[in-house]
């Protein structure tokens, strides 16, 4: 049963890679998020709940909405969410690898080629949408409206993946279309504010948040490299070892 084997493999791969990334986040990334939150402007005053700033994507939440308590509960939910995202990425990775092994006449995949797939996945899910588009942000950063950014992110990921797939699998005369797919989201351009700015405009907050943004940017990038290389190599191993396509 291919579906079951893909899901079980992905759960193992995602648990392992997501847990490692979660621990890295706990040690290196979350402290930056917590530090940035110290500068978040208070949303207690009713005036900030008006919708006049809504198009700036203000960070205003329903005061009554549940949120995990700071400390153990918040760390546990973050770890759980990291693992959840990692399992989802592992499902996509192993499924697409299985599709490759099933349908293409290219060499079958293993852990070594999985590393290359992992690096491509990092470009698809992190470098193209985040480093070339919507930069990784600390809380309190002013950004364009959320829905527009989510739509652009999704389009960028899909087009970048389609671009690489076209470059790799399509006949020679169609490969140029792959370059077009890769370039298109950046030609359209991510919905961005005019310049890096923060909800808290006091000078010390701006300089602290700018510094935190740079740290956040570098550390997520380092973490993502390790995460995706691990995810790719484990997925390549899993698709060769556990997703039994050749028995069909």
């Amino acid at each position: 049963m291919i579906l079951r084997n893909i899901l079980l493999s992905a759960i193992v791969v995602g648990l392992f890679s997501g847990l490692l990334y979660g621990l890295f986040q706990h040690a290196q990334i979350s402290p930056i998020i917590y530090a940035a939150e110290q500068y978040e402007v208070s949303e207690e005053t009713p005036a900030t709940h008006s919708h006049e700033d809504a198009k700036q994507g203000d960070h205003h939440h329903d005061a009554e909405a549940w949120a995990p308590e700071d400390g153990f509960e918040r760390i546990a939910y973050t770890l759980g969410a990291d693992i959840g995202i990692a399992i989802a990425y592992a499902i996509l990775m192993i499924s697409l690898m299985a599709l490759h092994d099933l349908k293409s006449n290219k060499p079958k995949l293993d852990a070594m080629q999985g590393i290359a797939w992992g690096i491509l996945a990092m470009i698809i899910f992190f470098v193209a949408p985040a480093m070339f588009g919507l930069h990784p942000e600390v809380p309190g950063t002013e950004a364009a409206a959320l829905e527009g950014r989510q739509t652009w992110w999704t389009a960028c990921v899909v087009l970048t993946a389609a671009g690489f797939a076209t470059l790799y699998y399509a006949p020679l005369k169609f490969k140029a279309a792959g370059l077009l797919f890769l370039a298109l989201p950046h030609l359209i351009g991510a919905p961005m504010p005019d310049e890096l700015s923060f909800a808290n405009t006091s000078p010390e907050a701006v300089s602290a948040l700018t510094e935190l943004s740079h740290q956040f940017y570098s550390l997520t990038a380092i973490g993502m490299v390790f995460f995706f290389v691990l995810l790719g190599s484990m997925s390549g191993f899993a698709v060769k070892r556990f997703v039994k396509l050749e028995s069909l």
């Binding site: 998020i33 994507g57 973050t78 969410a81 930069h135 809380p139 959320l146 992110w153 997520t220 993502m224």
Partner: peptide, 30 residues
């Protein structure tokens, strides 16, 4: 479906639970 549930679901509860992870994976947040 899992990526959208964990990373993109707009409900406040889903956002708050996954908030730090969304930032760490550089998903659009807030």
């Amino acid at each position: 479906a899992i990526i959208f549930a964990v990373g993109f679901a707009p409900m406040d509860v889903a956002h708050n639970a996954a908030h730090d992870a969304r930032h760490a994976f550089a998903f659009p947040c807030h």
